[in-house]
């Protein structure tokens, strides 16, 4: 019977640890799926030589550095550029054309981690000549991940894998054109970042983002429990334009949530759903923190305007050069 007692104590300790992380630092993992969280806590314990979760709680409260390490463990998830090539192909072939007519396209990559999918989308937008009128909002709760995303530095080995994904996804360029090799790493072409705004946003606690045409959130919801999943679906539904597209990971679905009726099937195999005009019938007591939208979106708009004037300048320059019989 010892097992039961130990087990219950451990679950109690985990609950207290997550409470402490939320109360002290405002990072709310209380509604994350527990099995993965447990693995990550144990991983940190074995590195730090800690035997009991109770000690982890103490370290988290009194040792900020330790907390940051643990937070880093919690935010580890792996992703690739063009992971699930058929999904990106579908995005390019079926979804982008549907947005072509819009004067402005807004894409939110929620839980962007280290930016692999952000750049995948940026590359496709460029190739489809949509970059100039598109803004990508890339958000994550981890500033460490966001910094890495902004850097856009990848190992040569992973870029090789990404290249094969890119080709399978219907890429039309030589993938290496988007990188500069520096030793054993490859740095992403900086121009791909021009229409990307990186920002801290925590899906577990932060609010709505306005009027998105595409929300991409892949392999993030699997880490949440049902309750948090529903809360996030509510957030997405409020943040999407009517007719906007919600893209989930290949093992995620909106069909088991109360928001199922608000989305039409576009490509079920690829988990791409279209927000229909039906009003949301599901109501839940959700205490969304103050909306992040206005300032952030304005920032995006300013960037787009700045970009446009840059492009016009360049056009002038180019035509000037051409006028003088240049290249």
């Amino acid at each position: 019977m010892d097992y039961y007692d130990n087990e219950d104590n451990e679950n109690l300790e985990i609950m207290l640890l997550l409470e402490a992380m939320n109360a002290k630092y405002g990072y709310d993992f209380r509604n994350y799926a527990k099995a993965s969280i447990k693995r990550r806590i144990r991983h940190r314990m074995s590195i730090a030589g800690i035997k009991k979760i109770t000690e982890v709680i103490e370290r988290v409260i009194y040792d900020r550095e330790f907390f940051i390490e643990l937070l880093g463990d919690f935010s580890i998830s792996t992703t690739e550029m063009f992971r699930d090539p058929s999904f990106f192909q579908a995005l390019r072939k079926s979804i982008f054309p549907a947005l072509q007519h819009l004067p402005f396209i807004k894409i939110w990559v929620a839980g962007c981690s280290t930016g692999e999918e952000v750049y995948s989308i940026a590359i496709m937008l460029k190739e489809e000549n949509l970059s100039d009128k598109t803004m990508i909002y890339a958000t994550d709760y981890s500033d460490k991940s966001l910094s890495a995303a902004k850097e856009g530095v990848f190992s040569i080995k992973s870029v090789k894998q990404y290249a094969s994904n890119y080709n399978d996804a219907g890429g039309i360029q030589s993938f290496s054109n988007y990188f500069t090799a520096k030793g054993d790493v490859a740095v992403i072409d900086k121009s791909l970042r021009h229409n990307v705004v990186f920002s801290i946003h925590n899906l577990a606690s932060d609010g709505v983002f306005g009027e998105m045409n595409i929300i991409l959130c892949r392999n993030v919801l699997i880490y949440f429990n049902r309750e948090l999943q529903n809360k996030v679906f509510d957030l997405f539904t409020k943040s999407l334009e009517e007719g906007g597209f919600l893209c989930l990971g290949s093992k995620e679905t909106i069909r088991l949530s109360p928001f199922s009726g608000n989305y039409d099937e576009v490509l079920n195999d690829e988990k791409i759903y279209k927000r229909n005009t039906r009003p949301v019938s599901y109501s839940q007591k959700i205490d969304n923190n103050p909306v992040v939208t206005p300032e952030f979106v304005t920032k995006g708009g300013e960037l787009i305007r700045a970009m446009k004037s840059k492009i016009e300048e360049l056009d002038c320059l180019i035509s000037g050069v051409q006028g003088k019989g240049g290249v």
Binding site: N11, A33, K34, A35, S36, R39, I76, S77, T78, T79, N219, I222, Y223, G249, K251
Partner: peptide
């Protein structure tokens, strides 16, 4: 999971 549901992860 402890509640006997399945979870997936990309850890």
């Amino acid at each position: 999971e402890d509640d006997k549901t399945l979870s997936l992860s990309v850890d």
